[in-house]
C-alpha cells in the first residue's frame, strides 16, 4: 500500500490542514420549504426541510416546542458496493446525533405542537458524509426560515500515519488511525456533536479537535456565502 502522507503532501496533493473543495447551493428543491445541495470533495448531498407543519403522529407532539425529525439516508448507488436500501444501524445513529446537534441551535419554542422534518440524501459518499449532511441540513433550515441561534457547521479531523490532518478523504478514512467528526455553533464555539473512531493520545486529541474547529469555521463561511448568493443570483436574472 502506498503511504497516505509523504513529505507533508497527502494522496490528493493536499496539505495536512487543507480541506477538500466545498460548495453549497441553497434553495434547490421547489416543493420543499427549504433545501440545499452540497458538494464536498466527491461527497454529494441533498437536504430538504419541510415544516413547521402539523405533527404526525399527534401523540409525539410537544405543547412547549416543535419536535425535530431527521432522516439521513444513503442512496444504494452512493458507494462502490451497492448499499442495501433502507435504514440501518449506522444511518439511524447518524440521524439521531445530527438531530440532537441541530436541536441545540434551533429556537423550537416558537412553534408549539408542530414538527420540522429534515431529509438528507447522500447521493455520493466519500468519507465525512455525516459532516456534509449536517452542514447541508443547517443551510436548508435557514433557507426554510426556521429561527435559530446559530448555524451549525460540521467538519472532521483525524490521524493518518503519525500526523493529524483535516477532513479525511476516503482512503485516509479506511486506512487511517483515527477520525473525529465534530459540529460546532461557530459564534460561541460550542460543540454540538463529537464522535471518535480509532485511537488518539490526549495530546493528539486536543490537536485534532482544534484543527477540526478551524475546519468548521471555514465551513461556516461557505454556508453564509451560499445563503447570500441565493438572492444575488435572482437579482441578476
Amino acid at each position: 500500500m502506498t503511504e497516505l502522507i509523504k513529505n507533508g503532501k497527502r494522496q490528493d496533493d493536499r496539505k495536512p490542514e487543507e480541506m477538500r473543495d466545498l460548495s453549497i447551493e441553497a434553495g434547490v428543491l421547489k416543493r420543499a420549504d427549504g433545501s440545499a445541495y452540497l458538494e464536498w470533495g466527491s461527497n454529494k448531498v441533498i437536504a430538504g426541510v419541510f415544516g413547521p407543519q402539523k405533527c404526525i403522529p399527534q401523540h409525539i407532539s410537544n405543547p412547549y416546542k416543535a419536535i425535530l425529525k431527521f432522516r439521513y439516508n444513503m442512496a444504494p448507488f452512493s458507494v462502490d458496493d451497492r448499499k442495501r436500501p433502507g435504514p440501518d444501524r449506522r444511518s439511524t445513529e447518524i440521524s439521531k446525533v445530527s438531530k440532537e446537534a441541530l436541536e441545540s441551535a434551533l429556537i423550537l419554542r416558537h412553534f408549539p405542537n408542530t414538527m420540522i422534518e429534515i431529509f438528507v440524501e447522500v447521493l455520493q459518499a466519500a468519507a465525512g458524509t455525516r459532516c456534509a449532511s449536517l452542514t447541508a441540513a443547517s443551510v436548508a433550515l435557514a433557507d426554510a426560515g426556521v429561527p435559530m441561534k446559530d448555524m451549525v457547521a460540521a467538519c472532521a479531523a483525524g490521524k493518518i500515519g503519525d500526523e493529524v490532518v483535516l477532513d479525511l478523504a476516503k482512503e485516509e478514512d479506511n486506512a487511517g488511525k483515527a477520525d473525529v467528526p465534530i459540529a460546532i455553533k461557530p459564534k460561541s464555539g460550542d460543540i454540538v456533536l463529537l464522535q471518535m473512531d480509532g485511537d488518539l493520545t490526549p495530546e493528539e486529541f486536543d490537536e485534532t479537535l482544534s484543527l477540526a474547529k478551524e475546519g468548521c469555521m471555514k465551513v461556516s463561511e461557505e454556508q453564509q456565502k451560499a445563503l447570500q448568493e441565493k438572492y444575488e443570483m435572482e437579482e441578476g436574472e
Binding site: 435559530m148 454556508q223 445563503l227
Partner: peptide, 9 residues
C-alpha cells in the same frame, strides 16, 4: 439593496 442577514449574525 437592503442588507441580507443570516441566522446568528
Amino acid at each position: 439593496m437592503r442588507k441580507i442577514v443570516i441566522p446568528g449574525e
